[in-house]
Design a protein around this nucleic acid. Sequence first.
DNA 1: ACTTTCTACCCTTATAGCTG
DNA 2: CAGCTATAAGGGTAGAAAGT
Length: 321
Amino acid sequence: MKVKELSIPIIIPKLQTLLPRIDATHPKIPFMQADLAKLLKGYRGEKAVNYYLDFLPEKENFIIHSLRLPSGNYFFQIDFLILTNRYALILECKNFFGTLYFDEDFNQMIRTANDKEEGFQDPISQAKWHQQQLRSFLKLHNITLPIEFFVVISDPSTIVKTNPRNREAMKKVVHGHSLLEKISEVDSRYQNEMLDSKEVRKLSKLLLKSHTPEDIDVLAKYGLGVVDILTGVRCPGCGRIPMIRQKRTWNCCGCEVKEKNAHVSAVMEYFHLFGASITNKQFREFVHLESDTIAKKMLQAMNLPFSGSNKGRIYYDPMKR
DNA sequence: ACTTTCTACCCTTATAGCTG
DNA sequence: CAGCTATAAGGGTAGAAAGT
């Protein structure tokens, strides 16, 4: 059972919102594009892994995607957590291409691709770290449950190599297509029921409640300020910014697209860029609208959650409430 | 042709955020 | 800290535009 479904990491739509709204010559653009490409690749990998998880028996497995839990003053994020009444299984998804070499002597992973060698933090020790943190989380809530983990390589063409002495890597690093087989191996190894079905459900609820989604300020991340952002409504047809409002519709100066409600997505974009709230004035500035009354009517028509009255009115992102 | 929706006004009220 | 000011909402109206 999917307790928390696969969903796109919020940073992806945020970057997709940000990129078209900064000057094409901005020096940060290549970094953002590279980050976006990496994130999309990662998400595709998780999708691929998610596909296999659909084949697990519905009733016995509670699957949680992208779980971010507190650990002291910090957080740790697990790509997939599979919860059963006998054990918990962490899946650490990796989307590397090329040839991967797991070096247990230095806790390092070396990737060779396009005649280039690159070192990365060893995903096994990363997964172990998550295992340890989850262990203390469970301990904190007086729950005893063994925790297993796999490092899942989603790209089937990625070659995994290791020293034959490195039995751990051979056991723990798996390709997506052999994941189910590996899971059933683990499953048969754990026979003792640690929790009854009610307790498993309770634990999954506890985990979901403790899940704290990361709220990334994309502007801060790339050292951008309000001045770097191109404001205005974006044309849903050609992407051109800004659209001009005349005769009760938003008109694009590039293509001939007319869209009455183009400001709605602009508000969502505003939330992505500047945080989850907007005022009448911020809205007017962002969509290039003079009239506060029209702005008021538009914002009211969107039925956004709000706080305050009169001058103190603040509208909120419905996704965050 | 008739109805609905939207814009551009109006005035009043509440209050956030200054200013001294 | 009180008093002031600018701002945004509430609520209304007329007329234009759009929808049927």
